[in-house]
């Protein structure tokens, strides 16, 4: 592995995470969203895995990808419950206005999508490259 690639990968990793979060949160009004954000974040971790090894990427992720996927699914599911309570309609979103910013359970839902995508992609990539490393 070239030293330039492995050094730059750390930088790119951080950059890609930041971009992915930016994509996630601006998604409601501009191109972006949980899905693309999740893909970019997953790419960041994949970069770490390629430049160093899977163990490094796993450490950076901190949780197991399958657990992340489950958490995302749970989050998306939970985001529908408030609407069920207030309007008797699952996934009818709640909104709160903070200044000019609208935040609501739709954002929680999108974060859920984000986690599912990261977890799903990474659990396959990690598994596949672990085998190659051995």
């Amino acid at each position: 592995m070239s030293i330039i690639f492995s050094t730059m990968s750390r930088l790119f990793f951080v950059l890609m995470l930041v971009v992915s979060l930016y994509m996630l949160f601006r998604g409601h009004n501009e191109p972006g969203g949980g899905f693309v954000g999740g893909l970019i974040a997953a790419l960041g971790f994949a970069l770490l895995a390629l430049a160093h090894d899977v163990a490094t990427a796993r450490r950076a992720l901190m949780v197991h990808p399958v657990a992340l996927m489950g958490a995302g699914l749970l989050l998306a599911f939970l985001s529908g419950l408030p609407g069920l309570l207030s309007d008797r309609s699952f996934l009818t979103h709640w909104w709160a206005e903070i200044g000019s910013l609208h935040l609501g359970t739709a954002t929680t839902f999108d974060i859920g999508v984000y986690f599912v995508v990261i977890g799903g992609v990474l659990c396959l990539i990690f598994r596949l490259y672990e085998e190659v490393d051995q």
Binding site: H28, N29, G34, H102, V113
Partner: peptide, 10 residues
Amino acid sequence: GRNVVNVILV
């Protein structure tokens, strides 16, 4: 939301 695609999705 102004991003119609994303609003439809979420």
